[in-house]
Design a protein around this nucleic acid. Structure first.
Lengths: 144, 144
DNA sequence: TTAAAATAAGACAAATTTATCCGAATTAAA
DNA sequence: TTTAATTCGGATAAATTTGTCTTATTTTAA
């Protein structure tokens, strides 16, 4: 469904949000350990998230990655997916046709549209705050 | 969402079904031309579909690919996806966790489950007959 | 029996994704 | 101002997916 990069990106963003609630910046090393991902690859993904203004980075000693507390509730899963995988997963044609739309539908179009819209709605209505709070409560997990 | 191989596989299967209704066998060349895909790669995918008993092949002169007429309505999209991409797309964890389930859920688990189940239901309730008939009516298309 | 028309299968190549490594740039504290 | 702790960026490599090519095998018809 999502690329590995995107999976790591979502997991990393949740972990960063969780720490930002406590004003803690985290390093790629700490993030990778917590979400069980390759460090250097994770660092690359973090840079992409910084470029897309999903997270912030602070260079130098005592630096690390963070998200402004007030923005945590405004960051949606779709923002992260957009930044890493683009929007084709919840906007494109299920059979990969470039020109697929209502006027020139692929055979799966109508039925796939329902699924795709459900996915889009889910990604656009789920924010980092909600996800981070569940982790905090110990209800959900970021690895295994 | 689906791999290229899977997209080609679905489109090819629909085209084969369409021709099998008229007792016509089709070649990889004809299929690739019709669904706008690379011939040799498509041929590879067809072989995988044969191995998984989704379609039949007949070797030698006057051979080609076909589906027994009576089976067309019994072949579901999920059979094709299973054969080429496996079932992880509509059964696995959205964040790629191996151990994600009700007892050890990832942060997206509950919300993703709804989407995933919708996808599974769609794939399992859509058969080749339905898809082929829409093409026949000129309502839907296999390329562009 | 031979030739032609097909699929089958495996080796190879290109493109993309996933992953690693290293040096440069930046920043805070000593 | 120096040092240590960081992110940033680019080069490289490994793995996977996508795609090509060539040779075998099978089958029908002449």
């Amino acid at each position: 469904m999502f690329s590995k990069a995107c999976e790591y990106g979502i997991r990393a963003s949740i972990f960063i949000a969780l720490n930002s609630f406590q004003d803690r910046r985290v390093s790629p090393k700490e993030i990778a350990a917590e979400i069980d991902s390759p460090v250097a690859f994770t660092a690359k993904i973090l840079q992409a998230l910084v470029r897309h203004n999903v997270i912030n980075s602070v260079k130098g000693a005592y630096g690390g990655f963070e998200i402004e507390k007030e923005r945590i509730k405004d960051i949606k899963l779709s923002d992260i997916v957009d930044a890493i995988d683009g929007d084709s997963i919840y906007k494109g044609c299920g059979l990969g046709l470039q020109a697929c739309d209502e006027h020139h539908p692929c055979p799966m179009h109508d039925k796939f549209k329902i699924v795709r819209d459900e996915l889009r709605n889910m990604l656009e209505s789920t924010n980092l705050e909600t996800l981070a709070l569940d982790i905090k409560e110990g209800d959900t997990f970021l690895k295994r």
